[in-house]
């Protein structure tokens, strides 16, 4: 649905985006993650046709944003970082203006009413936008993006400035919309991306540093595969039995955590999944396993690792080599 090819954006000598490519399939919710100034907004601005790229191309719904700008723009609902609201208009006037501007063909009153119900701004419909709270302004911005029911929604930090209850509402709204829209949203709030998106693209210094499904991204990227297990059984015997297992590199006991229950750190060989064998072994021996978790990086750690530059990565491999 959205195809970004070799996108490069330079501001003078400053490279904001460096050869970015990705494709977003229809009906997926993609999260754009990155620290401030990483190039998230620039990418979104280029996709929506507000800026143009120095190099590369963007296709939305099969329309090139340079060759067919109006057709491409018609496919997109865009909520910029700062909602483009006219403070001297009422919500009603504003939505009607945007309705005309976007040349929407749905029955006007019904369409606008539906969207207002959806983002819950029907109670401020006749109020001046300048007098609304930030949360309401944000929602008017979302309403504006939804006008005309475009197949692609691009939301730049959609939950900024909302209170926790509203954040949950908006997230749920995005999830609902995700059923029949392609959504690209940016954020630097990790749990948000984790909660809403199916796929995450991490971007730093204008480059894509990670791209993958939300649930597997952390797993794939962490090079160490350590498991933390709590096992009810005699410490030494358990240690020996697990060490003797195939593909196990190292087992360390963390000591007794509950009466008779010990916690172990088990490191498997790279690329090997030892969880099944471990389970089988413990069942055979009759030692109940009370908990098992892997030390995959949480997204938070992953994010920090990916975005704090290549230094950390190098240090890590050096340490490993030593």
């Amino acid at each position: 649905m959205v195809e970004v090819k070799n996108l490069t954006k330079r501001y003078g000598s400053n490279v904001a985006l460096n050869n970015i490519s990705f494709t977003v399939d229809e009906g997926t919710i993609v999260g754009f993650l990155g620290p401030n100034g990483a190039g998230k907004s620039t990418t979104m601005n280029i996709i929506t046709g507000y800026l143009s790229a120095s190099e590369g191309s963007v296709c939305v719904g099969g329309f090139d944003t340079l060759d067919n700008p109006n057709e491409a723009k018609r496919q997109i609902g865009y909520l910029p970082e700062l909602p483009p609201l006219y403070m001297d208009m009422t919500v009603k006037e504003y939505l009607n203006f945007m309705y005309e501007l976007k040349k929407v063909t749905f029955p006007r009153e019904k369409h606008i009413k539906e969207i207002c119900m959806l983002v819950k701004i029907d109670n401020v419909y006749n109020r001046l936008i300048g007098n609304l709270s930030k949360g309401y302004k944000q929602r008017v911005g979302i309403a504006q993006a939804l006008l005309g029911n475009p197949p692609v929604l691009i939301l730049d930090e959609p939950t900024v400035g909302l209170d926790p209850k509203q954040i949950i509402e908006i997230r749920n709204l995005i999830k609902t919309l995700g059923r029949n829209h392609t959504i690209i949203l940016s954020s630097h709030i990790l749990p948000e991306v984790q909660a809403v998106c199916e796929r995450i693209i991490v971007i730093n210094n204008g480059e894509i540093v990670a791209d993958g499904r939300t649930d597997t991204l952390a797993h794939d990227l962490s090079s160490e595969h350590k498991l933390i297990a709590r096992i009810d059984g005699p410490e030494n015997e358990v240690l020996h039995a697990i060490t003797a297992m195939e593909n196990v590199v190292e087992v360390i006991s963390f000591g007794e955590k509950e009466p008779g229950v010990y916690e172990y750190s088990i490191e498997g060989k790279e690329g090997a999944d030892i969880r099944r064998n471990l389970f089988a072994l413990l069942t055979r021996k009759g030692w109940p396993m009370l908990s098992l978790r892997n030390t995959d990086l949480t997204l938070e750690e992953l994010f920090l690792q990916l975005t704090s530059g290549s230094d950390t990565g190098r240090k890590k491999s050096e340490r490993k080599g030593a």
């Binding site: 601005n45 929506t48 046709g49 507000y50 700008p69 109006n70 057709e71 723009k73 018609r74 997109i76 865009y78 910029p80 700062l82 483009p84 609201l85 006219y86 403070m87 945007m98 501007l101 976007k102 040349k103 504006q144």
Partner: peptide, 14 residues
């Protein structure tokens, strides 16, 4: 100044 040009320029109008 108000960044409302983003709404205008990303709308399907020349």
């Amino acid at each position: 100044k108000n960044k409302t040009d983003q709404a205008l320029l990303t709308a399907p109008v020349g």
